[in-house]
Each structure stands twice: as structure tokens, then as C-alpha cells.
């Protein structure tokens, strides 16, 4: 019953072969969980403020990052359906708190809202939060088991099946990092969760498994559920996000001796020397890698 972002449909492993393809159900339902910019009236400044409150909770109260991710998803979906009266910043805070409360209940994680609010310098009483929870639930049609890009990671990882478990694990970890960061990018809201997941994994593969990249790319773009053009656009958009934290990858590469590091070193050895260089070098490097990734992804379209 617990909501697992990677498995929102709560299917047990041993049942998976007996049921109609659960992934079809996911692809069929994902649009219900989007908050597209186009045609909507998402209040960007309200969103920015809400995300900042939620990130405060994540880092200040060491909240489960998935719960924070889910809370932002609720905020986005709420804002795409309801308008917040301008000049009332407290409503945005109340919305953020209520979404945090709902998300931590879905994830079964504890979050002491009173302590958190005290630190933030505002306190809503429990009745007010309760009322706002109901307003959010109503606006979101009680669809609280959000289908997010995380829900599709397992499915798309299966396209990488010749890879070994540690590699898959590294890919997933890298893609997850990208997904957490990508949530802050407004432009990502226009893409379906499945497309974002595929793009995040491809970008991780390009970085960590350059040799196998081409075969993964063609496998994923041949998936019947994925719109190739949208995937390409999304890869473009996610490229910046993913490369933004390449320093993290270097840490990962140098701190372990799993097979990942062999391939990881392979792709980054020439660059790791450069990272000690000037910041303009780093910037060049980042840009070069982004354009490499874009080029590599475009090839699949040919």
C-alpha cells in the first residue's frame, strides 16, 4: 500500500508475470499526472516560491528526497489547475506545507511540520493545513499516486539488459540524480514522465557506458511507447541539467572499484585531468560534452 515512486501500481515481483502488462497501464495513465505549461496558467513565481519552501524542508529536516519530489509534483499539478490570488504569498506557503504533508503521508515518512514551520517563521494551525490538504486533494482528483519519471526507470532499464547489475545500478543512480535536478527546470514540465525517464537514462548511459550507448539508444527509441521526436527534444533539454553535476560523477568514479569505474574512467580519464584546470576549461568541457551528447542522440534519428 505504501506509495513507491518507482512502482506506483504496487505490483509484487512474483505477480508480475501473471498480470496484464502493468507498464501499459502506466503509459496510459501518465498524462493524468502532468502539469503542462502549454495551455495551462502555471504561476511561475508561485512555483518558484513553493519549490524553495519544499527544498528548505528537504535539506533542513532531512526529508526523504522522494517525498520532496512528490510534493513538488503536487504543487505543479495544483498550480496548473488553480490560480493563486496574487499578493498573498502565505497561500503559496500553505500550499507547500500541505503538499509536503500529503507527500510525506504517501511516502510514510515522518515530517514534523510544526518544527519546520517554526524555523521558517510561519505557523499554520492544523485545521488550516487539513483544509488545504482537502483542497489539494480535490484539485488533484485524489490522484496522489503520482506517475513520475521514476515510475519508468525500471522499464527502460530493461532495455539495457545485457549490462551487468552494478552497471545498471550506476545508470539508475546517475539518472535519478538527473531527475531530481530536472524537476527544478520549468521546461521539463512539458514532457511526459516516461520521456523524461528515457532521456535521463540515455544521458547517464552516454556518460557512463559510452561503448554500449549506441545500442541502448536504438533500443529505447524503438520502444513503441516513446515518441522519438519528443525524446530527442527532451534529451536536448535534459543535457544541460545532467551535465550540471558532472563533478559528482568524478567523485563516484574515483571512490569505488566496481566495473562502473572501469568504464567511467574510460570515458572521463582524459577529462579528469582537465577538471583541475581553470574554470573556463570546465565550462568548455561541459559545453563540449553537452554538444557531444546532443550529437550522439541525434544520430539515432537518422
Amino acid at each position: 500500500m505504501e506509495y513507491d515512486p518507482e512502482n506506483p501500481l504496487t505490483i509484487s515481483n512474483e505477480e508480475q508475470h501473471r498480470v496484464s502488462d502493468p507498464i501499459e497501464a502506466l503509459f496510459a495513465a501518465e498524462s493524468d499526472h502532468m502539469s503542462p505549461l502549454a495551455g495551462g496558467h502555471l504561476d511561475l513565481s508561485a512555483r518558484r516560491d513553493a519549490v524553495s519552501v519544499i527544498l528548505q524542508a528537504q535539506f533542513g529536516c532531512s526529508l526523504d528526497p522522494f517525498a520532496a519530489y512528490l510534493a513538488v509534483n503536487y504543487v505543479d499539478r495544483f498550480l496548473s489547475k488553480r490560480e493563486i490570488p496574487s499578493g498573498k504569498p502565505w497561500i503559496v506557503r500553505l500550499l507547500s506545507i500541505s503538499c509536503l504533508s500529503l507527500a510525506s503521508k504517501m511516502k510514510k515518512t515522518d515530517l514534523n511540520l510544526t518544527d519546520f514551520q517554526r524555523e521558517e517563521g510561519f505557523i499554520f494551525d492544523s485545521q488550516t493545513i487539513r483544509r488545504m490538504e482537502l483542497i489539494v486533494l480535490g484539485a488533484l482528483d485524489w490522484r496522489m499516486r503520482s506517475i513520475t519519471p521514476f515510475s519508468f526507470l525500471r522499464f527502460f532499464l530493461s532495455f539495457f539488459s545485457p549490462a551487468q547489475a552494478p552497471l545498471l545500478h550506476a545508470l539508475k543512480a546517475r539518472a535519478s540524480q538527473t531527475l531530481f535536478k530536472a524537476q527544478n527546470e520549468i521546461k521539463m514540465l512539458d514532457f511526459k514522465p516516461s520521456v523524461i525517464a528515457a532521456a535521463a537514462l540515455l544521458s547517464a548511459a552516454h556518460e557512463l557506458l559510452p561503448i554500449q550507448f549506441a545500442s541502448f539508444r536504438s533500443a529505447i527509441s524503438s520502444c513503441e511507447f516513446v515518441n522519438k521526436e519528443r525524446l530527442l527534444e527532451c534529451c536536448d533539454a535534459i543535457g544541460d541539467v545532467a551535465m550540471d553535476g558532472c563533478d559528482l560523477t568524478f567523485e563516484m568514479v574515483s571512490s569505488s572499484n566496481t566495473p562502473v569505474t572501469v568504464l567511467g574512467r574510460h570515458c572521463s580519464s582524459s577529462e579528469s585531468e582537465r577538471t583541475v584546470g581553470s574554470s573556463s576549461d570546465e565550462c568548455d568541457l561541459k559545453n563540449r560534452r553537452i554538444s557531444e551528447l546532443r550529437g550522439a542522440l541525434r544520430l539515432s534519428q537518422a
Partner: peptide
Amino acid sequence: EEGIPPTALREISLLQMLSRSIYVVRLLNV
């Protein structure tokens, strides 16, 4: 005091997900 009980939240949202099928009685509203 804690607002909507977590179990209710998780279960009603699951019910909502299921009622997409026309062969399941539709949950119209809460």
C-alpha cells in the same frame, strides 16, 4: 489533528487509479 489519515490517503488514491477502467465502478468524487 493530523489531517487526512495516511492509510485513507493511500487507499483512496489507489481506488481512484483503478476506477479508470469501465469495468470497475467509478469513483466520482470524495
